[in-house]
Structures are given as structure tokens and as C-alpha cells.
Write a protein that binds this DNA or RNA. Structure first.
Lengths: 167, 167
DNA sequence: AGTGAAACTCCCGGATT
DNA sequence: AATCCGGGAGTTTCACT
């Protein structure tokens, strides 16, 4: 079980590419004082380890007509069917998050909808049929912050340049 | 104001690049039956319109040692200082979302922390000093879904051109 | 693991329709 | 707006360290 797989080069690379997926690897290489091939190898390694889950252009939901963002706590009639419900939720494109949480809810989800009316439609037509007994909805008027976990302060774990001895 | 800024080519492009930011634009071009330069122009347009907010490699927080994810509803002693508090929250790298919502909370945030102990530390050392009167915390044991809003699938970018007459 | 060079592919500007 | 084009730049593989 690898615990500390990231060395400072990994972190530097992640920092750069997590902010701009289109940055040329050669530019990353120059910033890190290594060769382009090294970056290529590291990114491949990080991807294989699952640390990098992929890359994406980030789209502003509001700008493409999704003006309502909501969080919902759901209560299931049959809580033991959690996994099945998750599978159904995956098929609903408007559902972007689903968590198993503390706090009493059976599940906690995040949804984007065109407007409040559309949100109601989703709840009524797509969520209710999954077997909800009750739900609580929190609507976001405004996302003042919405970003990825930043790697700024992540080097705390090990200052020493460590060999990553796994396997 | 522009209502329908996106034509089917835009949607097709967004669909592809929102799933893989590293895909060569030429490959997108081939998939859309247009030239590479056309993709280049469209992406520039979508970026200028703010529809594309940027690009990023997606990092799995858990894999880099952030094993606790939590949502918190915050109540401020001085709710009118919302904007100031937001500015302070932006400085805390572990805070990845902040919303102004219905539901009684003054604000609703999402946080990543290394573990529960680290979360408590953040709450006590960084959040409390912002002037919290009370808070409610929901901890996620498991993110069963975590993705971007996906665009509806596009029908063939065909001969039919729908005019996007704006400006 | 990282390097450097080679072969391949892509990016992106300008001119054109 | 989209197309073609071309020089400059980036990507990726591989033998070597």
C-alpha cells in the first residue's frame, strides 16, 4: 500500500496541469527543470495510479442555460437500495454529485437545472420514482466559489525527498 | 441578450473537450467534419463568451491524501459581511465551494480535509474566526458520483444549419 | 527514473472564398 | 465564418545513461 506516492516533482506538475490542462508539457518541463519526456512519463504514472482522473474543459453551467443549482438531501423508502438508486442517478445528466453522508439523509446530491420549474420537473419525474420518502432541497442563488482542491499547501506531508518504494 | 448562443457544432465541440481537454483539436475537427481552424475559432469564441471557464486535469482528492469531504451550513454573526467572508474563504485552499442559498444558512460550503481531525482543525482555526455563530456539518463517506454537467448528446452535425443570429 | 534526438503530429496565424 | 496552407512548436518513442 503506497502512502506517499508524490514527490515534489509530482506536486509541481500537478499544480500546473490542474490549473490549465492545455499547457504544453514542454512548458511544464521548463518550469520544473526537467525534460519533456520526464513530464510525459510522470503524467502517465499519475494517471495509472488514479491520482489524475482525467482532464476537461470546464463549462459554466449558467452560461449554457442551467441557472439553477441545488443540493438535496434524500430519504429513501428502501435505504438498502442505495446502490441501485445511485446507478439510476448516474443516468440523470443533471445530477452531478451523490454522496453517502452523515446527517440523517440517506443520500445527498447536487443537481443543475435550467430553472426552478425544470428542477421541480426533475424531482417529480425522475427522482420521486426512485422511491423517495422525503427530501430537502437547498437552492443556490449564487456560487461565490467553485473550484478544485488546490495543491498549494500540499507539500506538508513530507519535506524529505523520498524514494517511492512501492511494490 | 443571447439566448441560444450554442449551435450544434458548439455543442458537439463542448461535448468532446469537456470529456478530454487534451484531445487534439484536429481530432475534434474530424469528428465534426470541419477544419481544425474552425475548432480553433469556436473554442476561442466560447472562451470569450465565458462559456468555457478554463481547462484542468482532474485530481482525485482521496488519492493525494484528502480523505474527508464535508458540506457545511454556516451562520454568521454578521450576515451582512457575506462578501468579506467569501474573500477570506477564497484564501483557504480546502474550501472548494461557497454558495448563497435558501434553507436558512447564511452560506453553504464544501470542504476537503485530510481526515476528520484536520477538518476540525480547519473549522476551529480558520472558519470560527470569520465570525460564525453556528454551523452544521455533513460529512461525506463516499462520493458515488462526482462529475461535470454533461451536455445532451448531439445529433449528427449535418447539412442543416441553424442560424445563430445574435448581435 | 531521466535525457536527448528523431519522427510525427498539431497549433494557429494569415490569406482567401 | 469556414477553408487551405505553412512555419514553428509540441508530443511521443527509444536507445542510452
Amino acid at each position: 500500500m503506497a502512502k506517499q506516492v508524490l514527490d515534489s516533482l509530482d506536486r509541481h506538475i500537478l499544480k500546473l496541469i490542474s490549473q490549465d490542462a492545455r499547457i504544453p508539457f514542454l512548458e511544464v518541463a521548463r518550469a520544473c527543470n526537467v525534460s519533456g519526456a520526464a513530464i510525459h512519463q510522470r503524467v502517465a504514472k499519475l494517471t495509472n495510479l488514479g491520482i489524475i482522473k482525467g482532464s476537461q474543459f470546464v463549462i459554466d453551467p449558467e452560461k449554457i442555460g442551467y441557472e439553477t443549482c441545488a443540493y438535496m438531501g434524500l430519504f429513501l423508502k428502501e435505504p438498502e437500495k442505495f446502490d441501485q438508486v445511485v446507478e439510476e442517478l448516474k443516468k440523470i445528466p443533471e445530477v452531478v454529485e451523490c454522496h453517502y453522508t452523515t446527517g440523517g439523509f440517506d443520500m445527498f446530491i447536487k443537481i443543475y437545472a435550467v430553472n426552478n420549474h425544470h428542477l421541480l420537473e426533475i424531482i417529480h419525474d425522475k427522482l420521486q420514482p426512485l422511491g423517495l420518502s422525503r427530501s430537502e432541497t437547498i437552492i443556490s442563488f449564487n456560487a461565490a466559489i467553485d473550484r478544485q482542491l488546490s495543491l498549494k499547501d500540499i507539500q506538508q506531508v513530507s519535506d524529505e525527498e523520498d524514494e517511492t518504494t512501492e511494490e
